[in-house]
């Protein structure tokens, strides 16, 4: 294993991160040039504005961290939208000191159910998590009567999501904490090795003695947990929970993970890439909203950027054997 290939693999994984980071700089320069010409100011370079954008982006970042773990074992979690919304709704409904634990527990339970369905029932994750998403939506519609719940977020949720310490949004600290945990899991624990092994070839990991089913359940549980956390924070940020609050997080989180160089088929990718991918998407969004781009143009640019980035570094190999 000490032979040089390790070096090569590293550069193959680092390339997307470097290119995506360069693209972020391009976005910043382009956006600044635009604002300079039109308004004579450069909000994109002001730390305060950037922090505010990153604060909004931290919810996406937390979701993407969990999504990445699931994608690394070559599964996907489509239940994120309503896991997030359910966590937010139940957290605000319970209120008091138990609000945040309840929100996290909702995410964790949904994640474990997802994991059991995928690992033990062997239903494709694409369809099982889709079903769970529908069930969660059904439960929440029945619970709230289809309206935005009237309950408000607790002070602690507000504090974590919307307030600042030393001028830095607290949500960023939460995102940082989640990031550190994920990096430690992926880089420094046996679980992280198992995750990459399963993503590369589950049968091989199984034959090597890994309890692949348990690892799969743990991965989905972690993904559910991050979705729950994002839900709690988002409810704190917007003071209350609302229907469909998670819908805007599913596809961007997958896009962020993939733009960051994680292979959608699993087994390869670094967390730093996901981080860069999230920042890229957040900044792209904020530049487009500064430019007052209508939704139509946004979607087209959004799609074009994903294709462009993947054409540069995400191309698969031709199957020739």
């Amino acid at each position: 294993m000490t032979a040089v290939p390790a070096n090569l693999i590293l550069s193959r994984d680092d390339r997307p991160i470097v290119i995506a980071a360069l693209f972020i700089i391009v976005i910043l320069i382009g956006g600044t040039a635009y604002t300079w010409m039109h308004f004579g100011s450069a909000p994109l370079l002001s730390p305060n504005y950037l922090l505010q954008q990153l604060q909004i982006g931290s919810f996406l970042g937390i979701v993407a961290a969990g999504m990445m773990i699931v994608i690394l074992i070559s599964q996907i979690d489509l239940s994120v939208p309503w896991t997030l919304a359910a966590a937010a709704m139940l957290a605000t409904a319970i209120g008091g000191p138990w609000a945040i634990p309840i929100g996290l527990a909702v995410g964790l339970i949904v994640g474990i159910v997802n994991g059991i369905g995928v690992a033990y029932l062997r239903v494709p994750s694409m369809i099982f998590t889709l079903g769970i998403n529908a069930v969660m939506r059904g439960l929440m519609v029945a619970h709230t009567g289809g309206f935005a719940p009237q309950t408000a977020a607790t002070d602690l949720m507000r504090y974590l999501a919307a307030e600042r310490t030393f001028g830095i949004p607290n949500a960023l600290f939460v995102w940082l904490a989640v990031s550190i945990v994920v990096v430690v899991i992926l880089q420094r624990t046996a679980l992280g090795r198992y995750i990459y092994a399963i993503g590369n070839k589950e049968a091989a990991a199984y034959l090597a003695g890994v309890n692949t089913r348990r690892v799969t359940v743990i991965c989905f549980a972690l993904c559910g947990l991050t979705a729950g956390l994002a839900g709690v924070l988002l409810a704190g940020y917007s003071v209350k929970a609302y229907q469909g609050m998670g819908d805007a997080y599913l596809l961007p989180s997958i896009a962020a993970v993939v733009i960051g160089g994680t292979n959608i088929l699993g087994g390869r990718g670094r967390y730093l890439g996901t981080l860069v991918g999230v920042i890229l998407i957040v900044l792209l969004n904020s530049v487009l909203s500064i430019m007052e781009m209508p939704e139509a143009g946004r979607q087209v640019i959004y799609g074009a950027v994903i294709i462009l980035m993947l054409l540069v570094y995400g191309r698969g190999e031709r199957v020739t054997s």
């Binding site: 596809l251 997958i254 896009a255 959608i264 799609g303 698969g316």
Partner: peptide
């Protein structure tokens, strides 16, 4: 483009909706 179908169509889908 040799991009995985799931992610390629995610992107083209955004373009079509646009």
């Amino acid at each position: 483009g040799r991009i995985q179908p799931i992610i390629a169509t995610l992107a083209t889908g955004a373009i079509y909706i646009g």
